[in-house]
Nucleic acid binder design. Sequence first.
DNA 1: TCTTTGTTAGTAAAGTTAACTAACTCTATG
DNA 2: CATAGAGTTAGTTAACTTTACTAACAAAGA
Lengths: 393, 393
Amino acid sequence: MRVPRKTGNSKLVKKLNKGEVLQQVIQHGQISRADISKETMLSRPCVSALVEEMIQEGLLHEVGMGDSKGGRKPILLEYNYQAYAIAGVIFEGTTLDMAIADLKGEFLARYRKRLALPSNGETVIEDLAAGLEQLLEESGIERERLLGVGVGLQGVTQRGSGTVSFSPSTGWMGSPIQQTIEERLGLPVIIDNDVNMMTLGEYVRGAGVGHSNVVYMYVGTGIGAGIILDGQFYRGSREAAGEIGFMMIGPVNNRPNDASGVFETNYSTSGILQQAKGFLSDLQEGSSVIEELIRLARQNNADAQRLLDDVYRHWAYGMANIVSVLNPELLILSGEMVHVDEEGVKRIHDWLNEWVPEVPSLEKASLGERAGLIGAVHCVLEAFPFSRLLDKE
Amino acid sequence: MRVPRKTGNSKLVKKLNKGEVLQQVIQHGQISRADISKETMLSRPCVSALVEEMIQEGLLHEVGMGDSKGGRKPILLEYNYQAYAIAGVIFEGTTLDMAIADLKGEFLARYRKRLALPSNGETVIEDLAAGLEQLLEESGIERERLLGVGVGLQGVTQRGSGTVSFSPSTGWMGSPIQQTIEERLGLPVIIDNDVNMMTLGEYVRGAGVGHSNVVYMYVGTGIGAGIILDGQFYRGSREAAGEIGFMMIGPVNNRPNDASGVFETNYSTSGILQQAKGFLSDLQEGSSVIEELIRLARQNNADAQRLLDDVYRHWAYGMANIVSVLNPELLILSGEMVHVDEEGVKRIHDWLNEWVPEVPSLEKASLGERAGLIGAVHCVLEAFPFSRLLDKE
DNA sequence: TCTTTGTTAGTAAAGTTAACTAACTCTATG
DNA sequence: CATAGAGTTAGTTAACTTTACTAACAAAGA
C-alpha cells in the first residue's frame, strides 16, 4: 500500500476513516451521521465516535436539524472552514500580492504592495513577512492557526528542492528560497512557478472546474502551459513539462538564444510585435498587442488582418500539437489569448476540428489576476490533505 | 481514502498489510520475516502471522536459510510465481500471437497462428479459444489458475467500456469485444490497443526499465505513441492521448482524409514512400523504407540523402514537440525508427539539444516483436494487483 | 405503530509490546 | 584447540490495546 505510515500501528485505519468522514462532510456541505454511515460503509456507532472526536478538535460543527425522512430528524454536521487558515503569495513583476484564506479557499483579507526595485532577496522576504503580519491582524486570525504559505513567482522553480533557478524580479536566483522563507516565517512554505499557480487556480475555481484533464495555455512575453492529467498536476521528469514555447512552430532560425523556444520566439507577444513592426506604432504601457491588432483588422488594415490570421493559425498549431499528445478535455486560454474575440476563438476551433480528432473545449481563463493567488492558497490545501489536519490535535 | 472497500470492515487493513508484505517479497526476490518487518514497519509477530497465511494459500514458499548477520540464520521466503498464470494475446495484422506466462511475466508456452482472411468476429474468437486450450495443455496449467487474459489489437479501443471502434483485421468493429471474449472464455479479459501493449512491454521489461516518464514513439504505416507519466499509463480524456500522428508537422494540405493526421500523412512510412516515388523503386514485402533510404544514401544518392535528412529532421520536430509538452526522461523509438543508424540517432539528438532544454535519452525499442505480448501479460498483472490474489483463497 | 437517528454495551479482529525460545557468531580462557 | 558464555539476530507465544462491528435500545417524528 502506498499510504505513508509512521508507526505501523492500527491507528492508521482510524485516521483513514476519519479522513473519509471529513471528506464526506466537505463534499456534501451538510450531512448527518446516518448519511455518512451509508456513504462510507462505516457503522453508525463508528461514525458517531469519529465525529465526536472531530467536534472536540474543532474540525466539525453541529449546525441544526435536517428534515425528517419518516423518523427522527437528523442532526446536520458542517465542516468548520474557519478551523485553520492559509496564506497565498504571488510575485507578479514588481508587485507583491498576498491573501489569507479559510480552508474553503475563501479570501479573508488581501494585501498588495509595489516592490522597490532593484530588489534583493532579503528586502523581498521582509516585505513578505510584513504583509503576512498585516493580513493576520486584518483578518483576526492567530498565527498558530496558519497551516502554511503558498508562494508563486515568475521563474523556474524546482518544487522538490524548493529552489529557484531563474527569477530576476525577486533577486532569488539559485537560492533555496523555500527553506529561507520557512525559517523567516516559522511556517511551512510551498513555492511554485506562477503559471502553475494560475493553472491550479483555474482548475479548482475557474474555467477548469469539473474537468480532470486540463491544459492551461499562457501566452505573454513567453509561452508556457500548466498541465493537469487525471486530476493530478503533471510536472515532468525535471519540472520542465509544459514548456510549450519550445515547440517547433514557425521559422526555426529566428531565435535570439537557446533559452527562447521556437514557438515562443515567433508567437509570443514579443514575437508578434516583431512581426508587426512595419505597421504597428509603439504600444503604450499595459495595452494588449492582440487588442490592437483586432482593432486595426476591424478597420480593414490588411497587414493587421494577415498577421492576426497568421497568429491565430499558429496558436492553433500549438493547440493541435498539445491535443494530439494529451487529448485533454479542456484547454484554458490565458494571458494575451483572453483578448481574442469570439470570432477568433471560433476560427481556431474550426481549424482544430479540421486537424485533430477529439477537440477539447476552448475556454478563456475566468479568474483574471486572482487566479494565481487562488492557486497559491489551494496548493497549500493540497499539500496538507485533510488527513494531516487530524494529526494536529 | 481512495482504496476501494467492500464491507467497510477492518479486514481491509489486513489485506493491505498482506499486500505490502507480498510486495516486499516480490521486490526483494528473497527476504526473511525479520527484514519484512523492518521494511514495512509491521511488528515481527504480525508479519509472521501474515506470512503463515500466505504460505497456506500457496502464495509464498520458504526456500532455505540465509546468511547469519551475527545471530540465528533467517529463513528466506520467496514468492511462488507459479501460483497463478496469465495469458497474453496479440493480433498483429493477420497473425494471432499468444503466450501463457507465470506471475513473473515469464512465458511458459507460446502459440502462433495465421488467421484466415477475411475474418469475422466469431471465427477469430474461436481461434483465440483454441489457442488458449493449446497453451494450457502445453504448459500443464489448470484453467482455474488462470487469472485473466490480456488482448492487444490494432485499432481504437475504449478500454473503459471494453469496446473496439475501429479494427478491420479482426472484424470486431464497434462491438463490446471484451465482454464477448470474457463470456466465451469464462475468464476476465482486458483489451487494449497494440501500441499501448508494446509501450507497457518496453516499460516493464525493455528499454524503459527504471524510468517513470516514458514516451514510446512508433512510426509505421501510422504514427502513434504510448505515454507513461509518473509511472502511470496516460490515456487521455477519451483514450486518444498519444495520437501524435495528428501533430502539425510538414505540409498541412496533403491529407487524404480526416482520419489521417498531418504528421502521419507526411512522415509515416507511407508518407515517406510517397515522397520517394521519384527515385525509389518498389520495395519488396517486409523490407524497410528507412533501411533502403540509408542504403541509397550511403551510395551517395543525393535524393535519398536529402529525403533521409528531411525525414530525420521532421521526426525530430515531433520529438521536440513531445519533449516540450511532457519533459519525459526517455523516448523509446520503435517501428521504422529502429532501423535508423547510429549516426542518424546522433543527428536527431543534436537537433534536440539545439531546440529544447532537458533533452531525454533516446533509445531504440529493445524487445522486438515480443514487446506486445509481454505488455499484454503485464497489463493483466497490473489489473490484478497482488492484493486481489489475496481474495482468491 | 412504524421509521429513522443516534447511543450504549458487548464482541471480534488485527495489530502491538514484552518476554521467551532458538540458533548462530565471537571471544576469552583453560 | 575446544569450549563456555556473552551478545545478536530470527522467529514465536501470550497478554493487551485499539478500533470497528453487531445488537439492542432510546429519542423523536410521521
